[in-house]
C-alpha cells in the first residue's frame, strides 16, 4: 500500500549550488520556478538541505575554493541521486578553460549524469534535462532493489574449511568455478 518507489518519481526535490558561475544560468533556474515555465507542476520544490533532496543542479566552472564544498554536498546526499550539469561552463569549462584558478568541468570531481548545454541555457532545455534525469532516477531505483549475495561459498583446503576470503565486494559477481 505504501510504495515508496512509485512516489519517489512523482515528487523529486532539488538542491542548487553555484560553484563559481557568472549567475546567468542561476537566473534561468530561478525563472524555471516562476509562473511561465512552471517546474512545480512536476512536484519539484527548491530546498536548501542536502539530506532531503534527490536531484543536484550545479552551475559554473569549479574554482579551487569551491571544490571541497562541492564534494561534501555530494557525499551528504542519500542514494539514489542524479547530478545535472547546467550550462556550457559546467560541462566543459566554456571560455574559462585555460585560466589559472579553474578546473575544466565538473566531471573531474563528481560523476555527472546529464549535460545541459547553452550560454546561458534557456528554461526549456533545463526542463528537458530534468525530465531525462527523472528517467535515470527511476532506472537507478530499480537497480538498487535487485538482490545480491554477501558471502561466497566456503573453500576447502585439504579437508579444512577456509572462511577467510568469504566476503564479497558489493556488486561483484560470485565466481563459481
Amino acid at each position: 500500500m505504501f510504495d515508496l518507489k512509485k512516489y519517489r518519481k512523482k515528487s523529486p526535490w532539488i538542491l542548487h549550488y553555484n560553484a563559481g558561475s557568472c549567475n546567468g544560468c542561476d537566473i534561468e533556474i530561478l525563472a524555471c520556478l516562476s509562473p511561465k515555465y512552471d517546474l512545480e507542476r512536476f512536484g519539484v520544490i527548491n530546498t536548501g538541505n542536502p539530506k532531503q533532496s534527490d536531484i543536484f543542479l550545479v552551475t559554473g566552472p569549479v574554482t579551487f575554493r569551491t571544490r571541497e564544498r562541492l564534494v561534501e554536498l555530494y557525499t551528504q546526499m542519500p542514494e539514489p541521486k542524479v547530478v545535472i550539469a547546467v550550462g556550457s561552463c559546467a560541462c566543459t569549462g566554456c571560455v574559462f578553460r585555460d585560466m589559472y584558478n579553474v578546473e575544466v568541468g565538473i566531471d573531474r570531481y563528481i560523476p555527472v549524469d546529464v549535460y545541459v548545454p547553452g550560454c546561458a541555457s534557456s528554461p526549456e532545455l533545463i526542463i528537458d534535462g530534468v525530465v531525462k534525469g527523472l528517467e535515470i532516477l527511476e532506472q537507478k531505483t530499480k537497480e538498487m532493489e535487485k538482490p545480491f549475495k554477501l558471502f561466497k561459498e566456503a573453500t576447502t583446503d585439504d579437508g579444512i574449511v577456509n572462511r577467510r576470503h568469504s566476503a564479497l565486494k558489493v556488486g561483484e559477481d560470485d565466481a563459481k568455478d
Partner: peptide
C-alpha cells in the same frame, strides 16, 4: 535549432 541534452556515455568532455 536548439542543441540536444547529453548523458554520461556520450563522453562530452574527455573525448575533446
Amino acid at each position: 535549432k536548439k542543441p540536444d541534452v547529453a548523458v554520461k556515455s556520450d563522453n562530452v568532455n574527455s573525448g575533446w
